[in-house]
Simulated scan of single mutants.
Amino acid sequence: MTDPNFTLNTGKTIPAVGFGCAFGNWTDDTEMQGFRPELAWHGVTEALKAGYQHLDTAHCYGTERHVGDIVGRALSEGQVQREDLFITTKLAHPAAPPHVAISHRLTWNWGSVPDIQQRVMDDFEASKEKLGMGYVDLLLMHWPGDFVNKDKGFAREARLAIWEVFESLVKRGDAHAIGVCNFTADHIEDLISAGRTVPAVNQFELHPYCQDPELEAYCQSHDILVEAYAPFASGAYGILKDPVISEIAQQTGRSTGQVILRWQLQCGRVVLPKSSNPQRMAQNLQLFDFELDDAQIAKINALSPKEAKRSTVDPATIP
């Protein structure tokens, strides 16, 4: 692909490469696990300087205020225009395990609140206030349910209730598009079979060691764009040193990170790399002046193990 944008089922365009605004550690148990929003001050500032127009944050990341402040300064100085930016945020992240440092005020189990729809609306208003924006370009339901709930009926009704709020935000103009995150085909089918708005996006963990061709085919059949988060497995599994990917990097004269991102794009996915290194940030945008051939694509596809190597919870465990 040579076009740096994809088109959503709403007709709106979305930059094919976004900057992930979750900072912290999820994979190394020798360090504190959880979010480190203070790292966003440098990271998001450098991302804007590098030319990123697509910023992907979430209510639970604790970085909405950072994104809002940094973008606000850029807007005030005339460096960017709001219409040229694509801002994504996410709501309804379930409570995290106790060892993960995430604010309990930003995450909650769906069965623990008296009114799910009111909580989602309140969280959205808080997100919009932190961002300092009148609308978001894309609003995602962060997870399809609680990590501890095993009641399929409750989870389905809760998803539908949250989705109804999302639909109302589109009607109000607060969100220009709505989608889901970490959803399986069954989770999405709960929405579609109820006659609700088809999600514009399904964002889930996707990298050479964590592939799901069946889910991608399902999304494609319903005109749902796939977004790949953790394209480098959040630093786990040594993916950037994989010998197959390293060989392709030598053949193309690119970094292993660029090869992985180019593979994602050629497979039709929006990709969301994250880095704190300005040089790598710039590299991660330099993806549209080379292509992988069919054999190279096939070699990376073949790296998928029988059991996916994930950096987070398997969404299939959520009913």
Rank of each mutant, 00 (worst) to 15 (best):
Y52R: 03
Y52G: 01
Y52F: 15
Y52H: 02
Q53T: 15
Q53Y: 08
L55A: 05
L55Y: 04
D56A: 07
H59C: 05
H59I: 00
C60K: 02
C60Q: 12
T63P: 03
E64F: 00
E64D: 12
R65T: 11
R65D: 13
V67T: 00
D69M: 12
V71T: 10
G72P: 05
R73V: 14
A74Q: 10
A74I: 04
L75N: 08
L75F: 10
E77N: 12
E77G: 04
E77K: 14
E77Y: 00
Q79I: 14
E83M: 06
F86C: 03
F86N: 03
F86G: 00
T88Q: 11
T89W: 09
K90D: 08
K90Y: 07
L91H: 01
A92N: 13
A92M: 09
A92C: 15
P94L: 07
P94I: 03
P94F: 06
A95N: 11
A95E: 13
P97M: 04
P97N: 02
A101F: 06
I102T: 12
I102G: 01
R105V: 11
L106W: 09
L106Y: 10
W108D: 04
W110V: 02
S112E: 15
P114L: 00
P114N: 07
D115P: 06
I116N: 03
I116L: 15
Q117T: 13
Q118F: 03
Q118C: 01
Q118N: 12
V120P: 05
V120A: 08
V120W: 02
D123H: 14
D123G: 03
F124I: 09
E125T: 13
S127E: 08
S127N: 07
K128E: 12
K128H: 11
K128C: 11
K128N: 11
E129M: 12
M133W: 02
G134I: 02
V136P: 02
D137F: 10
